[in-house]
Computed example of a mutant assay.
Amino acid sequence: MSTQAAPTPDALPSPWPIVARAVALLTAIISVLLIAFAWPSVRSSVHHVPIAVAGPTAAVKQVTAALGQRLPDAFEITEVADTAAAEQLIRDREVYGAIDVSSGTAQVITASAASAAVAQTLHSVATALSQAQAQGTSTAVAVRDLVPLPADDPRGAGLAAGGLPLVMGGLLAALLLTRLVRGTTRRVTAALAFAITGGLAVAAILQFWLGSLNGSYLANTSAIALTIAATSLTILGLESLLGYAGFGLGAATMMLVGNPLSGTSTAPEMLPGWSGTFGQLLPPGAGGQLLRSTAFFDGHGATHSVSVLVTWLALGVVLCLASGLRTRRTATVADTAERPAAHATV
């Protein structure tokens, strides 16, 4: 007579409450992902975008009033006397574009390399500005792109799409190094080495193959490498100090918060509310703005981004060192506790 073995606990079906909790958790996760990536895009609009208006005071006031009536709170306007001053502000990344009425005929000066979305917005209001300048008569407006995107990538698709691989590269670096490399110094060294090699590779692909970047290859490489290093070392430091919880915290910060709020595909000022400003305080946003500066503006406007990235990089190194010191202290205490026991046994 054969007997059937009793099922082990692992083979038993999960209780229904556990199934319900798993479904609820998955629902929460997909909702958070949707909010993180869709909310900034759906709520994107023009608000407080810095531009310049050049020309005589009376004409500038007229243009400013027309802008305020058509798009309230859309622009932060800097008044300048002439075309040269407006162009200098654009090249220094102080403003995204300019309305020039210094010659008596309205001219729109854009910088699609700073933000194709803002340049498109300035195109759309050009007719209204010309009508205001010409007192209601329909006049064609000259639009000039002072700092254009590369001819091989006129929409800036490569630069916009390049933000996610940088974040993913930092995440994968932290994940692999914690699994494959032992020792705090070796992990930090490996992360920095990967940032350099990854920067060289990504910059080469974007600049020489896809044609998405201009400027100095070494400067672009440095911007990308600094972004990768800041991301990977921060996550590596959190993981080394807090374990899986630290890795999850770092991954969520960079992937679910930093990447959607980076403003790389549009402009930080076009994101809803405070999110654009906050996104520039995280590595993905700061890295995207730094790469625009090195690729198209000879490094102008890069100070804030470099400061943010260096701060995150330093934080990651400090966290790694703190974890290493804690590990050494724990090992020393354990060794000290074992010695009396060994003497007692003898």
Rank of each mutant, 00 (worst) to 15 (best):
V118K: 04
H48F: 13
V46R: 04
A160G: 05
R329S: 11
L71K: 11
T83Q: 10
R144M: 07
D298L: 04
P148L: 10
T231D: 08
S307V: 14
T184S: 06
Q69N: 12
Q131K: 09
V32Y: 11
A190V: 00
G198D: 00
S307Q: 14
A190H: 03
A142L: 05
V181G: 02
G279T: 03
A11M: 15
E76Y: 10
I51V: 08
E79D: 06
V333S: 14
P17N: 10
A201V: 12
Q120I: 14
R328I: 04
A161T: 06
S323T: 01
S138G: 13
A5L: 12
T294G: 02
A229R: 12
V60R: 12
V101N: 07
L206F: 02
S307R: 04
W209F: 11
L321V: 10
R91F: 08
G324A: 03
S216H: 09
V202E: 13
L89W: 01
T197F: 03
P15G: 11
A195T: 04
A116K: 14
Q280N: 06
L149T: 02
S41K: 15
E269W: 14
L146Q: 10
R179P: 14
R144P: 00
A113S: 03
P148Y: 07
V143F: 14
V257F: 12
T303H: 07
S41H: 11
I109C: 10
T178N: 15
V101R: 01
A223V: 05
A342K: 13
T345Q: 15
Q133V: 10
V257Q: 05
L177T: 01
